[in-house]
Design a protein around this nucleic acid. Structure first.
Lengths: 235, 235
DNA sequence: CAGTATCCATTTCGATACTG
DNA sequence: CAGTATCGAAATGGATACTG
């Protein structure tokens, strides 16, 4: 656990545990449905495995996370006390959405974006059979510029290589633009109208996209009045 | 600001700012009504002035805190975005109250306790004129063992020396016990009944104490069922 | 899959003293 | 009152490689 504050105040006692770097992001990942070590790693790619391991131990010791091993599969879940952090993490996300709008270039990780998008595809709404989407980020070179989402009835896969199936729709934009849409900083329609994002392919799919390609759970957070991006100026 | 997480997730962006050590405790102090540099220091005694200064600058730059200088008096206040952290800090305090019950010996700071108590005295309920309370912590030696609370119509003062006025009531217990009462881990009546705390003095005052000597704002947080301390066993 | 082990550059921060 | 200056010990944690 982190260093002590030398205070009996419950806020201080809570923060001794929770203000350690990465800790609440692990809770966020557990909330989002990652329960295996390597699934957590995918959602926290900049965290070294040693550090993730250490934080998980700390959280288990603190009673916030429960570790179960079934055979040689290990899973992590929030305990009752961990589940009581969910509204706090949600509130932090809403606060961040409202007040920390500017993203640095280092924040624009295409792999994380695809990983997020894939997690929230509405399987009920997607047409039956296989649906393949191709995302092209015009400002990224090499394998980071093209991503395939392969949606089957049994799940969604993310590929950074051509899986060889027919592509139903191609989504082309700068990476930042697509991230801003995902975050709810921009609306689909406005962005398309402004020419910053192009949907090409199956007309049916193009029209239906916003119904089954969901946005971030924080996207609908109301913004402070002065901070609304327009379709054209993204400053 | 803290190191970047390299994530566009608003929780991560929020935590880049907020998970830096001491940061949310400064917000807590501002919420509690400390607005001057040295008042903040009294609520954060283990923080060096250099670090407090640095954190305040960071918070001002992030737009969470506003700094005003009127003449040579400088004040700090929460901005609109900072005020939106209030429910989050409150939730963290409630979470800490419920789930982080054990206090280490380093957490038992008598000066902080007196500072907290003095802040929440209900001036409306206190009898008119001067009221002086003496707290005696049986397990503390030297000046840390005796504290006077001098309540006038114009405010409350904390002294670690005898101010020389007549004492209306003496409160005697171990420091940990008084802190547990303040935090709401124990009830006044139970603790007195168990002989762990003694109130001596003006009968009127003894009876009225709980009405004007308020407990921590988190004291009334409901505890998880299994974690209730009884009057006698404080494990 | 689920982690450990190691290494060291970097950061952090507590203590103390000092200033306009 | 409201900070700045300085310093060194300690911890943090990122990178990388490796293991059962």
């Amino acid at each position: 656990m982190g260093a002590t504050y030398g205070q009996f105040c419950p806020v201080a006692k809570a923060m001794e545990l929770l203000d350690e770097r990465w800790t609440l992001l692990i809770v966020r990942e557990l909330m989002a449905g990652s329960h295996h070590f390597n699934a957590l790693r995918r959602g926290l790619p900049r965290m070294s495995p040693a550090l993730l391991s250490k934080r998980l131990h700390t959280l288990v010791r603190a009673g916030v996370v429960e570790r179960h091993s079934e055979g040689n599969r290990v899973t992590y879940h929030l305990s009752p006390s961990g589940r009581e952090l969910e509204p706090i993490v949600a509130a932090l996300g809403q606060w961040g959405t409202r007040w920390i709008g500017e993203l640095g270039d280092v924040d624009l990780d295409p792999h994380l974006l695809m990983w997020d998008i894939h997690r929230w595809i509405d399987m009920e709404a997607v047409p039956d059979g296989r649906t393949v989407l191709l995302f092209r980020f015009t400002d990224m070179t090499g394998p980071a510029g093209s991503w395939w989402l392969v949606i089957n009835t049994d799940g969604v896969d993310v590929c950074d290589f051509d899986p060889g199936h027919e592509v139903r729709m191609t989504i082309t934009s700068e990476l930042r633009t697509m991230i801003e849409i995902w975050r709810g900083d921009r609306a689909w329609a406005d962005t398309v109208r402004a020419g910053l994002l192009v949907l090409r392919g199956d007309t049916q799919a193009v029209r239906a996209v916003p119904t089954w390609l969901k946005l971030s759970p924080f996207a609908s957070t109301p913004r402070p009045v002065a901070a609304v991006l327009t379709g054209t100026s993204a400053s």
